[in-house]
Design a protein around this nucleic acid. Structure first.
Lengths: 143, 143
DNA sequence: ACACTATTACACGGATTAATGTACAATGTC
DNA sequence: GACATTGTACATTAATCCGTGTAATAGTGT
């Protein structure tokens, strides 16, 4: 019993994969750290709302964002500085206004995916297959 | 100048959307909070690695996970408790072993998306279109 | 009953984060 | 130059988070 409990070769894997096989597919510590950063960008309500507004409008300045989101400019600017530091957004000045737009495609894509999932409350997977269904319907239309 | 600066009707929107139009599409505070929670689940390296191992293997116990990830059982168990509390994973006991498996489809889907993006380092968007290309190629093969 | 193993509970310390308010910098108008 | 507006820098505070080590619990075998 004790030998079977501690022996790695006898671990219970549902898909009958060995530790080596899982390990070969498992994300590395370095990549996990990168992925953590990516998700962390979106793991904040203020940043989510900012990025969503930018994805809708394309480009907005601090003042407009704070008015839209009904938040203090300092709070908005604080988060925008982080997003700019991590190259998620780019900036351009126009007089006293500084405009921000999303430049990181991964962040924008995950944001869209997440928003779609929330809108498909009962069947989150349906939101993800909507694109494939649309493509298929278009191809049927062509025939 | 001061009137043009402060007037909301004259805000500079690149896509020429009015504040009202952006607002009607903008994610609500409540939904942003839900989405924040979803991304927060994945915004931690330990949880990412745990969930990735579970997605590969289907089901694993604490001991196996800590061996695979080369982490202490307490650290692994600590995160698994959180994941179970938020209904991201389910548990089943088998003797002294407790097995965990992913039950939240949104989390698993976002995880897969994120991992794919990292693997497609130069063209993250290509990772997202790979599915559509595969479907299209299969349909061409059928013809 | 006892020994062993797997897992969780609990408390702690250190690190990180985000909003806030004040001060400062940049820009535009008169 | 004075003034107003926009936006950032800076410092502070409170809250959150996570790994760690010890203690406790559950399950199994002898």
């Amino acid at each position: 019993m004790s030998s079977s409990r501690t022996s790695e070769q006898q671990m219970n894997y549902c898909k009958q994969l060995t530790k080596e096989e899982i390990n070969s597919r498992l994300i590395s510590v370095e990549k996990a750290a990168d992925l953590e950063d990516l998700f962390k960008t979106l793991a904040n309500e203020t940043r989510l709302r900012i990025l969503h507004a930018l994805s809708i409008s394309g480009e907005l300045c601090v003042n407009d964002l704070s008015a839209l989101l009904e938040m203090k400019t300092q709070a908005v600017s604080n988060q925008l500085q982080k997003l700019a530091l991590y190259k998620v957004v780019s900036t351009r000045r126009s007089g006293v206004n500084i405009f921000y737009r999303i430049t990181d495609p991964c962040v924008e894509l995950l944001l869209e995916r997440g928003v779609c999932m929330l809108e498909s409350t009962n069947d989150p997977l349906a939101a993800d297959t909507n694109t494939a269904e649309t493509v298929k319907a278009a191809q049927i239309g062509d025939e």
